[in-house]
Computed example of a mutant assay.
Amino acid sequence: MTTQTPIPVVVNGATGKMGREVVKAVAQAPDMTLIGAIDRNPEYIGKDIGEVVGCGALEVPVLNELESTLCMAAQEKQVGVMVDFTHPKSVYNNVRAAIAYGVRVVVGTTGMTPAQIQELAEFADKASTGCLIIPNFSIGMVLLQQAAIQASQYFDHVEIIELHHNQKADAPSGTAIQTAQMLSELGKIYNPPSVEESEKIPGARGSLTEDGIRIHSIRLPGLIAHQEVIFGAPGQVYTLRHDTSDRSCYMPGVLLSIRKVLQLKSLVYGLEKIL
């Protein structure tokens, strides 16, 4: 009886809030092995990532050397996977570097432009290398989005409110943008105007998509990740809301993505595409 070789995993952004959870989840997964932990925080460079995140020594030091770690991952017997939870300013180059080394990528970092995502899709396709870009790893959020698509067939008025912790760098959130994109696929224009609006303070009505959906972003300490999709019609309001109370809720989706990305040869956007 042969046993399958564990999937080698590199976590980029390993000491961040999401990165720490990914490290712990990968360390506990029987079919995965953590081979690299990348982070720019000088406080943790050289320290054992397992001790940093509180799950016991893993004999994997925190490094600030992405390309050398990707090179190591590319030489593993099993195809390696990089999970990226870094920053909108660096994620594009991180993903491109991983694809260049033949390392599969699971991206949780949001904030890339549509043009950047398209460029990465073309690069991944040419390299026949799997890449998953997942704005939100929560199963609950996938269910909310599916319910919103159903509701949008009956409501013409809808707005999105997303609430996150005040250390989130990009706004609106990738999840809110993805939700609006899903609603736009019906090909309708939302929120037909009833009056001529004027903003006394610019931005008071939030951002506006091409098909008329307003997205409002809230950033406060104490929040993690939350989203409301509010539909309105004469005499009724239909509200869909998803609340995150612990980042562990994302880990089943992250582990599923690590397993699924090995089967891909191109870029796929959205958790719903692999469920």
Rank of each mutant, 00 (worst) to 15 (best):
S217I: 06
I35M: 00
N166K: 04
T129F: 03
H242I: 13
A98L: 03
Q181G: 01
Q28L: 13
V9W: 12
L208Q: 05
H216S: 11
H157A: 06
V158G: 08
Q4H: 15
G140D: 09
E43N: 15
R40P: 07
N191L: 08
K260L: 06
T15Q: 14
S198M: 12
L144V: 08
I258L: 08
P221Q: 12
S194W: 11
A74Q: 03
K200C: 09
L163Q: 07
D156E: 13
G235R: 12
I230D: 10
P192G: 03
C55W: 00
I99H: 02
T3V: 12
V254Y: 05
Q236D: 15
S68D: 14
K126S: 14
M251Q: 01
M82G: 04
A98T: 08
R104E: 02
Y154Q: 14
L66Y: 03
V268T: 11
R205N: 10
G206I: 03
H165M: 02
M18C: 14
C71H: 15
L63N: 05
S217R: 03
G187L: 09
I134A: 08
E119I: 02
D84M: 04
A151L: 04
A25Y: 04
S68Q: 15
T15P: 00
S198K: 15
A37K: 04
A151I: 09
F137Y: 09
E119M: 07
F85Q: 15
L208P: 07
G270L: 00
A225G: 15
R104Q: 07
A97R: 04
